[in-house]
Design a protein around this nucleic acid. Structure first.
Lengths: 143, 143
DNA sequence: TTATCATGAAACTTTTCAAGTTACATGTAT
DNA sequence: ATACATGTAACTTGAAAAGTTTCATGATAA
Protein backbone atom coordinates (compact mmCIF):
# COMPACT_ATOMS: atom_id res chain seq x y z
CA UNK A 1 0.00 0.00 0.00
CA UNK A 2 1.50 3.31 -1.01
CA UNK A 3 2.15 5.71 1.83
CA UNK A 4 1.08 9.35 1.86
CA UNK A 5 4.26 11.28 2.59
CA UNK A 6 2.80 14.70 1.89
CA UNK A 7 2.65 15.70 5.56
CA UNK A 8 6.26 14.81 6.23
CA UNK A 9 7.45 16.44 3.03
CA UNK A 10 5.48 19.64 3.37
CA UNK A 11 6.54 20.11 6.99
CA UNK A 12 10.13 19.76 5.84
CA UNK A 13 9.51 22.46 3.27
CA UNK A 14 7.76 24.82 5.69
CA UNK A 15 10.62 24.74 8.19
CA UNK A 16 13.05 25.45 5.37
CA UNK A 17 10.80 28.30 4.22
CA UNK A 18 11.09 30.11 7.52
CA UNK A 19 14.83 29.58 7.67
CA UNK A 20 15.29 31.10 4.22
CA UNK A 21 12.85 34.02 4.58
CA UNK A 22 12.94 34.99 0.89
CA UNK A 23 10.33 33.64 -1.54
CA UNK A 24 11.25 30.11 -2.54
CA UNK A 25 10.30 28.64 -5.90
CA UNK A 26 8.62 25.29 -6.45
CA UNK A 27 11.76 24.28 -8.28
CA UNK A 28 13.90 24.89 -5.21
CA UNK A 29 11.46 23.13 -2.92
CA UNK A 30 11.33 20.19 -5.29
CA UNK A 31 15.06 19.76 -4.82
CA UNK A 32 14.63 19.82 -1.05
CA UNK A 33 12.39 16.77 -1.18
CA UNK A 34 13.78 15.15 -4.34
CA UNK A 35 10.77 15.49 -6.56
CA UNK A 36 9.51 17.84 -9.27
CA UNK A 37 7.87 21.27 -9.07
CA UNK A 38 4.38 20.15 -10.03
CA UNK A 39 4.13 17.75 -7.12
CA UNK A 40 5.23 20.58 -4.83
CA UNK A 41 2.70 23.06 -6.25
CA UNK A 42 -0.09 20.53 -5.91
CA UNK A 43 0.52 20.08 -2.20
CA UNK A 44 1.39 23.72 -1.47
CA UNK A 45 -1.82 24.81 -3.18
CA UNK A 46 -3.74 23.07 -0.39
CA UNK A 47 -1.82 25.06 2.21
CA UNK A 48 -2.44 28.29 0.33
CA UNK A 49 -6.15 27.54 0.29
CA UNK A 50 -5.98 27.33 4.08
CA UNK A 51 -3.96 30.56 4.29
CA UNK A 52 -0.73 29.16 5.67
CA UNK A 53 1.35 30.26 2.67
CA UNK A 54 1.13 32.71 -0.23
CA UNK A 55 2.51 32.45 -3.73
CA UNK A 56 3.53 35.06 -6.30
CA UNK A 57 4.30 34.64 -9.98
CA UNK A 58 7.09 36.00 -12.11
CA UNK A 59 10.56 37.23 -11.29
CA UNK A 60 11.49 36.85 -7.64
CA UNK A 61 8.24 35.01 -7.21
CA UNK A 62 7.70 31.86 -5.21
CA UNK A 63 6.24 30.83 -1.91
CA UNK A 64 6.25 32.54 1.48
CA UNK A 65 4.80 31.76 4.89
CA UNK A 66 1.61 33.70 5.60
CA UNK A 67 2.13 33.43 9.36
CA UNK A 68 4.83 32.44 11.83
CA UNK A 69 5.47 28.74 12.36
CA UNK A 70 4.59 29.28 16.01
CA UNK A 71 1.01 29.93 14.91
CA UNK A 72 0.65 26.69 12.96
CA UNK A 73 0.23 23.22 14.43
CA UNK A 74 0.81 19.82 12.86
CA UNK A 75 -2.94 19.36 13.11
CA UNK A 76 -3.53 22.50 11.03
CA UNK A 77 -1.36 21.13 8.23
CA UNK A 78 -2.89 17.68 8.51
CA UNK A 79 -6.34 19.21 8.08
CA UNK A 80 -5.21 21.40 5.20
CA UNK A 81 -4.07 18.31 3.31
CA UNK A 82 -7.58 16.92 3.54
CA UNK A 83 -8.94 14.75 6.27
CA UNK A 84 -8.25 11.41 4.70
CA UNK A 85 -8.22 8.30 6.84
CA UNK A 86 -4.91 7.81 8.60
CA UNK A 87 -5.25 4.03 8.85
CA UNK A 88 -4.39 1.34 6.35
CA UNK A 89 -6.95 -0.87 8.09
CA UNK A 90 -10.30 -0.83 6.35
CA UNK A 91 -13.66 -2.25 7.35
CA UNK A 92 -15.55 -4.72 5.23
CA UNK A 93 -18.93 -3.52 4.05
CA UNK A 94 -20.22 -6.47 2.04
CA UNK A 95 -22.92 -7.54 4.49
CA UNK A 96 -23.91 -4.52 6.51
CA UNK A 97 -27.01 -6.37 7.71
CA UNK A 98 -24.93 -9.16 9.26
CA UNK A 99 -24.77 -8.71 13.04
CA UNK A 100 -21.38 -10.34 13.18
CA UNK A 101 -19.91 -7.95 10.63
CA UNK A 102 -21.52 -5.07 12.51
CA UNK A 103 -20.02 -6.20 15.81
CA UNK A 104 -16.56 -6.72 14.36
CA UNK A 105 -16.55 -3.36 12.63
CA UNK A 106 -17.87 -1.57 15.68
CA UNK A 107 -15.04 -2.96 17.80
CA UNK A 108 -12.39 -2.05 15.24
CA UNK A 109 -13.91 1.36 14.71
CA UNK A 110 -13.92 2.14 18.43
CA UNK A 111 -10.24 1.33 18.74
CA UNK A 112 -9.26 3.21 15.60
CA UNK A 113 -11.24 6.26 16.66
CA UNK A 114 -9.53 6.30 20.03
CA UNK A 115 -6.08 6.01 18.45
CA UNK A 116 -6.87 8.68 15.88
CA UNK A 117 -8.18 11.03 18.57
CA UNK A 118 -4.93 10.65 20.50
CA UNK A 119 -2.87 11.28 17.39
CA UNK A 120 -4.80 14.40 16.38
CA UNK A 121 -4.62 15.69 19.94
CA UNK A 122 -0.84 15.37 19.89
CA UNK A 123 -0.67 16.99 16.46
CA UNK A 124 -2.66 19.90 17.85
CA UNK A 125 -0.14 20.34 20.66
CA UNK A 126 2.87 20.69 18.40
CA UNK A 127 3.53 24.00 16.64
CA UNK A 128 5.87 23.95 13.68
CA UNK A 129 8.48 26.14 15.37
CA UNK A 130 8.97 23.32 17.91
CA UNK A 131 10.06 20.82 15.29
CA UNK A 132 13.55 20.01 16.41
CA UNK A 133 14.16 23.62 17.36
CA UNK A 134 17.24 22.66 19.34
CA UNK A 135 18.92 20.66 16.61
CA UNK A 136 18.06 23.12 13.90
CA UNK A 137 19.15 26.30 15.66
CA UNK A 138 22.53 24.83 16.44
CA UNK A 139 22.82 23.64 12.86
CA UNK A 140 21.91 27.01 11.38
CA UNK A 141 24.58 28.73 13.45
CA UNK A 142 27.18 26.72 11.61
CA UNK A 143 25.99 27.66 8.10
CA UNK B 1 -4.53 4.04 -1.33
CA UNK B 2 -6.23 0.71 -1.08
CA UNK B 3 -7.33 -0.27 2.40
CA UNK B 4 -6.36 -3.56 4.00
CA UNK B 5 -9.65 -5.16 5.04
CA UNK B 6 -8.18 -8.54 5.91
CA UNK B 7 -8.47 -8.03 9.66
CA UNK B 8 -12.12 -7.05 9.52
CA UNK B 9 -12.97 -9.84 7.11
CA UNK B 10 -11.10 -12.60 8.88
CA UNK B 11 -12.58 -11.67 12.25
CA UNK B 12 -16.00 -11.87 10.66
CA UNK B 13 -15.14 -15.36 9.42
CA UNK B 14 -13.73 -16.55 12.76
CA UNK B 15 -16.85 -15.58 14.68
CA UNK B 16 -18.96 -17.41 12.11
CA UNK B 17 -16.64 -20.41 12.43
CA UNK B 18 -17.32 -20.81 16.11
CA UNK B 19 -21.05 -20.38 15.61
CA UNK B 20 -21.13 -23.14 12.98
CA UNK B 21 -18.80 -25.61 14.74
CA UNK B 22 -18.49 -27.94 11.74
CA UNK B 23 -15.57 -27.57 9.28
CA UNK B 24 -16.32 -24.73 6.89
CA UNK B 25 -14.96 -24.65 3.36
CA UNK B 26 -13.16 -21.73 1.74
CA UNK B 27 -16.07 -21.61 -0.69
CA UNK B 28 -18.56 -21.03 2.12
CA UNK B 29 -16.36 -18.43 3.81
CA UNK B 30 -15.92 -16.65 0.51
CA UNK B 31 -19.69 -16.20 0.37
CA UNK B 32 -19.70 -14.76 3.89
CA UNK B 33 -17.40 -11.94 2.81
CA UNK B 34 -18.41 -11.73 -0.84
CA UNK B 35 -15.16 -12.79 -2.41
CA UNK B 36 -13.64 -15.97 -3.84
CA UNK B 37 -12.10 -19.02 -2.15
CA UNK B 38 -8.49 -18.25 -3.08
CA UNK B 39 -8.55 -14.90 -1.32
CA UNK B 40 -9.93 -16.65 1.75
CA UNK B 41 -7.29 -19.38 1.70
CA UNK B 42 -4.54 -16.82 1.32
CA UNK B 43 -5.55 -15.01 4.49
CA UNK B 44 -6.55 -18.10 6.47
CA UNK B 45 -3.17 -19.68 5.69
CA UNK B 46 -1.57 -16.93 7.79
CA UNK B 47 -3.80 -17.82 10.73
CA UNK B 48 -3.01 -21.51 10.32
CA UNK B 49 0.68 -20.72 10.41
CA UNK B 50 0.08 -19.08 13.80
CA UNK B 51 -2.00 -22.03 15.02
CA UNK B 52 -5.34 -20.31 15.37
CA UNK B 53 -7.08 -22.55 12.82
CA UNK B 54 -6.55 -25.92 11.14
CA UNK B 55 -7.50 -27.08 7.69
CA UNK B 56 -8.26 -30.52 6.26
CA UNK B 57 -8.57 -31.58 2.65
CA UNK B 58 -11.09 -33.81 0.92
CA UNK B 59 -14.68 -34.70 1.73
CA UNK B 60 -16.05 -32.95 4.81
CA UNK B 61 -12.85 -31.00 4.89
CA UNK B 62 -12.48 -27.29 5.52
CA UNK B 63 -11.42 -25.01 8.32
CA UNK B 64 -11.86 -25.27 12.08
CA UNK B 65 -10.80 -23.18 15.04
CA UNK B 66 -7.75 -24.58 16.80
CA UNK B 67 -8.69 -22.90 20.07
CA UNK B 68 -11.67 -21.09 21.63
CA UNK B 69 -12.29 -17.50 20.61
CA UNK B 70 -11.87 -16.55 24.25
CA UNK B 71 -8.18 -17.48 23.92
CA UNK B 72 -7.55 -15.23 20.92
CA UNK B 73 -7.23 -11.44 20.96
CA UNK B 74 -7.57 -8.94 18.13
CA UNK B 75 -3.85 -8.34 18.60
CA UNK B 76 -3.09 -12.01 17.99
CA UNK B 77 -4.89 -11.90 14.66
CA UNK B 78 -3.35 -8.57 13.76
CA UNK B 79 0.10 -10.05 14.32
CA UNK B 80 -0.74 -13.22 12.42
CA UNK B 81 -1.59 -11.11 9.38
CA UNK B 82 1.90 -9.65 9.44
CA UNK B 83 2.92 -6.54 11.29
CA UNK B 84 2.45 -4.11 8.48
CA UNK B 85 2.29 -0.40 9.24
CA UNK B 86 -1.20 0.64 10.30
CA UNK B 87 -0.79 4.23 9.10
CA UNK B 88 -1.28 5.73 5.68
CA UNK B 89 1.12 8.48 6.72
CA UNK B 90 4.66 7.84 5.55
CA UNK B 91 7.92 9.60 6.29
CA UNK B 92 10.10 11.06 3.60
CA UNK B 93 13.56 9.58 3.39
CA UNK B 94 15.14 11.51 0.55
CA UNK B 95 17.57 13.51 2.67
CA UNK B 96 18.24 11.57 5.82
CA UNK B 97 21.23 13.76 6.56
CA UNK B 98 19.08 16.92 6.64
CA UNK B 99 18.48 17.95 10.26
CA UNK B 100 15.12 19.44 9.35
CA UNK B 101 13.91 16.23 7.79
CA UNK B 102 15.21 14.35 10.81
CA UNK B 103 13.40 16.64 13.21
CA UNK B 104 10.12 16.48 11.28
CA UNK B 105 10.23 12.71 11.01
CA UNK B 106 11.14 12.28 14.64
CA UNK B 107 8.13 14.33 15.72
CA UNK B 108 5.77 12.46 13.43
CA UNK B 109 7.25 9.13 14.45
CA UNK B 110 6.82 9.86 18.15
CA UNK B 111 3.15 10.64 17.69
CA UNK B 112 2.49 7.68 15.44
CA UNK B 113 4.26 5.31 17.80
CA UNK B 114 2.18 6.53 20.70
CA UNK B 115 -1.05 6.12 18.74
CA UNK B 116 -0.04 2.69 17.51
CA UNK B 117 0.91 1.57 21.00
CA UNK B 118 -2.53 2.58 22.25
CA UNK B 119 -4.22 0.77 19.40
CA UNK B 120 -2.28 -2.44 19.90
CA UNK B 121 -2.87 -2.27 23.65
CA UNK B 122 -6.63 -2.09 23.03
CA UNK B 123 -6.44 -4.90 20.51
CA UNK B 124 -4.69 -7.02 23.13
CA UNK B 125 -7.52 -6.38 25.59
CA UNK B 126 -10.27 -7.67 23.30
CA UNK B 127 -10.78 -11.41 22.92
CA UNK B 128 -12.77 -12.56 19.92
CA UNK B 129 -15.59 -14.00 22.01
CA UNK B 130 -16.30 -10.45 23.21
CA UNK B 131 -17.04 -9.17 19.72
CA UNK B 132 -20.62 -8.06 20.03
CA UNK B 133 -21.42 -11.05 22.22
CA UNK B 134 -24.67 -9.46 23.32
CA UNK B 135 -26.00 -8.72 19.86
CA UNK B 136 -24.90 -12.02 18.41
CA UNK B 137 -26.24 -14.28 21.13
CA UNK B 138 -29.67 -12.71 20.89
CA UNK B 139 -29.51 -13.00 17.12
CA UNK B 140 -28.53 -16.68 17.17
CA UNK B 141 -31.46 -17.51 19.42
CA UNK B 142 -33.76 -16.42 16.65
CA UNK B 143 -32.15 -18.59 13.96
C1' DT C 1 -9.21 -47.90 -7.53
C1' DT C 2 -11.57 -44.30 -9.22
C1' DA C 3 -14.30 -40.14 -8.89
C1' DT C 4 -15.14 -36.25 -6.16
C1' DC C 5 -14.16 -32.82 -2.96
C1' DA C 6 -11.16 -29.68 -0.74
C1' DT C 7 -6.87 -27.35 0.21
C1' DG C 8 -2.07 -25.50 -1.57
C1' DA C 9 0.09 -22.55 -4.32
C1' DA C 10 1.98 -20.30 -8.44
C1' DA C 11 1.22 -16.82 -11.73
C1' DC C 12 -1.05 -13.74 -13.34
C1' DT C 13 -4.73 -9.14 -13.79
C1' DT C 14 -7.32 -5.47 -11.51
C1' DT C 15 -7.96 -1.73 -8.39
C1' DT C 16 -6.72 2.51 -5.98
C1' DC C 17 -4.44 6.74 -5.10
C1' DA C 18 -0.26 9.29 -4.20
C1' DA C 19 3.42 10.36 -6.90
C1' DG C 20 5.44 11.49 -11.00
C1' DT C 21 5.34 13.59 -15.72
C1' DT C 22 4.17 16.41 -19.78
C1' DA C 23 2.36 20.32 -21.74
C1' DC C 24 0.57 24.66 -21.94
C1' DA C 25 -1.91 28.80 -20.20
C1' DT C 26 -1.63 32.82 -17.10
C1' DG C 27 0.45 36.37 -14.79
C1' DT C 28 4.64 39.43 -13.26
C1' DA C 29 9.05 41.71 -13.13
C1' DT C 30 13.04 43.38 -15.71
C1' DA D 1 9.33 41.71 -25.47
C1' DT D 2 11.38 38.29 -22.76
C1' DA D 3 12.31 35.45 -19.10
C1' DC D 4 10.52 33.69 -14.92
C1' DA D 5 7.21 31.52 -11.95
C1' DT D 6 2.77 29.84 -10.77
C1' DG D 7 -1.87 27.32 -12.18
C1' DT D 8 -3.78 23.42 -13.85
C1' DA D 9 -5.37 19.76 -16.79
C1' DA D 10 -4.43 15.23 -18.37
C1' DC D 11 -1.92 11.72 -18.42
C1' DT D 12 1.56 7.56 -16.68
C1' DT D 13 3.83 4.99 -12.89
C1' DG D 14 4.40 2.33 -8.51
C1' DA D 15 3.07 -0.56 -4.81
C1' DA D 16 0.16 -3.71 -2.29
C1' DA D 17 -4.31 -5.83 -1.47
C1' DA D 18 -7.72 -7.99 -3.97
C1' DG D 19 -9.31 -10.78 -7.49
C1' DT D 20 -8.74 -14.55 -10.95
C1' DT D 21 -7.14 -18.67 -13.44
C1' DT D 22 -5.10 -22.94 -13.33
C1' DC D 23 -3.30 -27.01 -11.81
C1' DA D 24 -1.11 -30.05 -8.29
C1' DT D 25 -1.86 -32.56 -3.96
C1' DG D 26 -4.20 -35.06 -0.63
C1' DA D 27 -8.41 -37.26 1.60
C1' DT D 28 -12.97 -39.34 1.58
C1' DA D 29 -16.58 -42.05 -0.37
C1' DA D 30 -18.48 -45.23 -3.53
Amino acid sequence: MRKDSRLSRVLHILVHLQAIERPVTSEQMAEMISTNPVVVRRTMALLRKANYVTSTKGHHGGWKLAKPLADITLLDIHHALGDGSIFTIGLSDEHTQCVIEQAVNEALNDVMNEAEALMLKRFGQITLDKLGADKISSYLKEH
